[in-house]
Amino acid sequence: MIKAKNIHKFYGNLEVLKGVDLSIKKGEIVAIVGPSGAGKTTLLQILGTLDNPAASKNSTLSINNQNLLELKDKSLSKFRNQHIGFIFQFHQLLPEFTALENVCIPAFIGNSSKNEAEKKAKELLFFLGLSDRIHHKPNELSGGEQQRVAVARALINNPDVIFADEPSGNLDSASAKKLHELFFTLRDKFNQTFVIVTHNEELANMADRKLEMKDGKIIN
C-alpha cells in the first residue's frame, strides 16, 4: 500500500532522514514513535507528499503503486486530494467557517457539488457524534469536538490513507482515548490505512505495528 525506499532529507547541512525504508499494508494502523528530533514529522510529511525527499536515483515512494516521485505539482496535488487525508495536532480548522463548511473544503477542492459534499459531510459528522454541532464554528466547540471535525474533514474524499501527526497531543486524556478508539472503528468500517506519529504510549501500543525512529532512521 505504502512503500518507501532510501528516503533522505537535508535541511542545509543537517541530514534529518538517513535512508529510511518502510512498507505499510492496506488497512494497517502503524504508529511512528521516537524522541523529538528523530525525524518522525519530516518522514510523515514526505510520505504524505507535503514535502519532498532529497533527490536520489535510489529513492522510491509509492502509494497504491503510484510512484509519487514522478508526479509534477498539479498531478501530485490531485493525488493528495483524492487519496490522502491529514489530521494534525492542532485541528487547523478555519475559524470563520462552521463545522460543516470546514469538512466540505477538501470535497470542494476535488470538484464535488455543494449538495454532494454537504451530504457526505453530514453523514460523517453524524457518524462522529456531532449531529447537533454541524453549524457551530470552531470557537464554539470543545477540543475533542474540534478534532473530530478535523477527522471528518480528513475522511470526506474517502482517502486510502490517513496521516496523523500527534493527533491527540492537544487533548485531555478522556478525549484522547475516544479519538484513539475512533481510529480503530474507522479502520474496521472503511479499511483505511493510518500512519500516526505520536508520543502517546497508549495509542502506540494499540497500533498493529510500532516503528521506532532515532537519529533519522527506523531502528526496529
Rank of each mutant, 00 (worst) to 15 (best):
K3L: 00
N6P: 04
N13T: 08
N13G: 02
L17V: 05
K18A: 00
S23K: 13
S23Q: 15
I24M: 04
G27F: 00
E28R: 11
G34K: 12
S36A: 08
G39P: 05
K40I: 02
N52D: 11
P53E: 12
A54L: 14
K57Q: 10
S59W: 12
S62C: 07
Q66A: 12
Q66R: 12
L71F: 00
S75Y: 08
L76P: 02
I84E: 00
I87M: 03
F88Y: 13
Q89R: 09
Q92K: 13
L94E: 12
E101D: 08
E101T: 11
V103Y: 09
P106D: 03
P106I: 01
P106F: 01
F108A: 09
I109V: 14
G110R: 13
E116R: 12
E123L: 09
F126S: 03
H136F: 15
Q146L: 06
Q147H: 01
I156P: 05
A164N: 05
A164M: 09
E166Y: 13
P167C: 02
S173D: 05
A176H: 03
A176F: 04
K177R: 14
L182D: 05
L182G: 03
F183E: 11
K189P: 00
F190W: 09
Q192C: 01
I196V: 11
T198D: 07
H199M: 07
H199I: 04
M206T: 14
M213W: 03
K214D: 07
D215I: 04
G216T: 07
G216I: 09
I218A: 08
